[in-house]
Amino acid sequence: MSQKQQDLLETGRLEYLQALVTEFQVTESPDAKEQVLANLANFAYDPKNYEYLRQLQVLDLFLDMLTEDNETLVEFAIGGLCNLCLDKINKDYILEADGVAPVINCLSSSNEETVMSAVTTLMYLTTPQSRQQTTALPVVECMLRFSLSANRRLSNLARVFLEDYCSPDQVEEARNLSKHTAVGIPLPKD
């Protein structure tokens, strides 16, 4: 492929993503919003799209959608963030935008895919600087409860989180606290 063809393809990609963002912003239809957000989340899989998605402020769009009442929008938004946060620039942006707290809030969703994406996103967002927030005591308590879930995917993912991202002291402290309180994030429905 010639450079001119490649440039044309890249311009087309940006224009298409811009059209999706515009459609999301102007449509009144909840179904259309869900479909467009699902498409944007799918485009977030491809590192070739990262720069365009940053340019179009799709990371902010995903972060904003985490607080929506529509569970489907939340599911697609956290899925999109999960896809994007492996990239260092995107990860730093999400962390600087105080994105950890809304991701943690997704742990209480009744939607299994939302919870799975939230746990995975917390793993990807964990850095030496963010570890205190991503592995805060309520998160560790939640992961302990998830590790006991009948849902194998969730219990396995929670165990990986506890083993790979938390210190033994954090896990022990959460275990001890859990014995004495009934407070916690509810498990998603199986």
Rank of each mutant, 00 (worst) to 15 (best):
F146L: 00
L56T: 12
F43K: 08
T135C: 15
G99K: 00
R54T: 15
T127M: 12
D164W: 13
C82H: 14
T134N: 04
E173R: 00
A44D: 02
Y165P: 09
Q133L: 04
S2V: 03
D190E: 13
L40W: 00
V115A: 05
L162I: 08
S108L: 09
M116W: 13
L86W: 09
L63M: 10
I94P: 09
L95N: 03
L177I: 14
E68P: 00
V58A: 10
L56S: 09
Q3H: 08
E141I: 02
T11I: 10
Q57W: 04
F43E: 12
T120Q: 11
L59D: 10
R54Q: 13
L8M: 13
N156M: 07
Y50I: 03
L66R: 13
L137H: 03
L144A: 01
V103H: 02
L40D: 11
V36N: 09
A32K: 11
P102I: 05
E23A: 06
L8D: 15
V171D: 09
N70H: 05
K179Q: 07
S110C: 11
T120H: 12
T135D: 10
R159L: 15
L95P: 14
C142N: 02
Q170D: 15
E173A: 14
H180M: 13
L125C: 07
E173G: 01
L154D: 08
L162Y: 02
K179Y: 02
F161G: 06
V58S: 08
C82D: 03
L37H: 05
M65T: 09
I89R: 04
V119H: 06
Q5E: 12
Q132Y: 09
V100G: 04
A97K: 00
N176I: 10
L148V: 01
A41M: 03
L122R: 03
S108A: 01
E112Q: 14
V160T: 15
L187K: 01
N49R: 04
L125E: 05
R153N: 14
